[in-house]
């Protein structure tokens, strides 16, 4: 009887677990002084509360450098607490790698410290931030409670910067969005790739310029060939000690853009394109089917324009 009550209590607690809005963030050490919170390779849902993204922090000599702040105020707050359990050092700087909501909507929890991004990312957040947040309220539900857009107040540009006594190399690329920042931490050998690289999850393309993205991947792969490289942290999916996520992202994008061009050239209508099965190589990738459908909406119209001989 006692055992049954225990089991029942555990079941109830398990149910409550989903509703206590605790992301259960655990800092994973990926290199010396570098930690990451690894999100699920899923789409936004009321179950995961938007914890589908990787965020990270570097414990520098004079403070902590945070790279991306997650999908909600609650995430930002919980992330900050989880950082405090690793180090007592103050947060010195928060960096947003690009203007997608799962990477900056935790900014509010860091409103008392400098938040920085590339100029175009700052503009993107100012222009689209509220619409993005609204969309996440719809998809993640009450996990979003209280979340508002907190704009980055500082502008970053490419080059070497010194933050809290740590020398970082900022590489400004684009293609996943109009501005994608890659942060290289030479002291640890970690390359923070943002959403230019996805690992074990289909890439998202709502603001993608695929040709630019493929060029950016070349540069990113170059960074992994440099002496001292140790870890690549993709924006989504597990970190790796090699360039595998870059190759995976490139393979998906190359196939996707080629498939759109070929479909348009063959006279397919958008619904025909949506109905196409995924090649075996990609079909088993998490969220491949849903990202494919979204990407058809993003990328097919331009391919169609070209096939119909219209001016862009």
């Amino acid at each position: 009887m006692k055992r049954l009550v225990c089991v029942l209590l555990m079941l109830v607690a398990g149910r409550l677990g989903a509703a206590d809005f605790d992301y259960r963030l655990t800092a994973v050490q990926v290199a010396k002084d570098v930690y990451a919170f690894i999100g699920k390779t899923e789409d936004f849902s009321t179950d995961n509360g938007g914890n589908i993204v990787n965020t990270a922090f570097i414990v520098a000599a004079q403070g902590v450098i945070v790279i991306d702040s997650g999908p909600s105020l609650r995430y930002g707050q919980q992330m900050r607490r989880a950082i405090a359990s690793v180090t007592a050092k103050p947060i010195a700087l928060v960096i947003n790698t690009h203007h997608h909501p799962d990477h900056f909507l935790g900014n509010q929890a860091f409103a008392d410290v400098p938040i920085a991004a590339l100029a175009e990312t700052r503009n993107g957040i100012a222009a689209d931030g509220n619409a993005f947040a609204e969309n996440l309220y719809r998809m993640s539900g009450d996990w979003m409670k209280g979340t508002e857009v907190q704009l980055p107040g500082k502008t970053l540009s490419a080059g070497i910067v010194d933050v809290a006594g740590r020398r970082l190399r900022l590489v400004a690329l684009d293609g996943h969005t109009g501005a994608d920042l890659v942060v290289v931490d030479p002291a640890s050998g970690v390359v923070f790739a943002g959403d230019l690289a996805f690992n074990g999850r289909a890439p998202t393309t709502p603001h993608a310029d695929v040709a630019h993205w493929l060029l950016a991947l070349e540069q990113l792969e170059g960074l992994t060939r440099e002496a001292g490289f140790k870890v690549l942290l993709p924006g989504h999916g597990a970190p790796t000690a090699d360039a595998a996520p870059i190759r995976q992202t490139r393979a998906w994008l190359t196939w996707l853009s080629g498939a759109m061009r070929a479909a348009a050239k063959d006279g397919l209508d958008m619904n025909d394109v949506l109905a196409r099965p995924l090649p075996a190589e990609f079909a088993s990738l998490p969220v491949a089917a849903s990202e494919y459908r979204r990407s058809v909406g993003h990328l097919f119209p331009a391919a169609e324009l070209q096939a119909l001989g219209a001016k862009p």
């Binding site: 063959d266 397919l268 169609e304 324009l305 096939a307 119909l308 001989g309 219209a310 001016k311």
Partner: peptide
């Protein structure tokens, strides 16, 4: 300047033979 500009083509071969697609600005 481009109002009512039409682009389009027809397909006479392949699985979509007989298809016509047209776009208007």
């Amino acid at each position: 300047q481009r109002l009512n500009e039409v682009s389009g083509r027809q397909w006479s071969e392949g699985p979509n033979a007989g298809r016509l697609r047209m776009r208007i600005v």
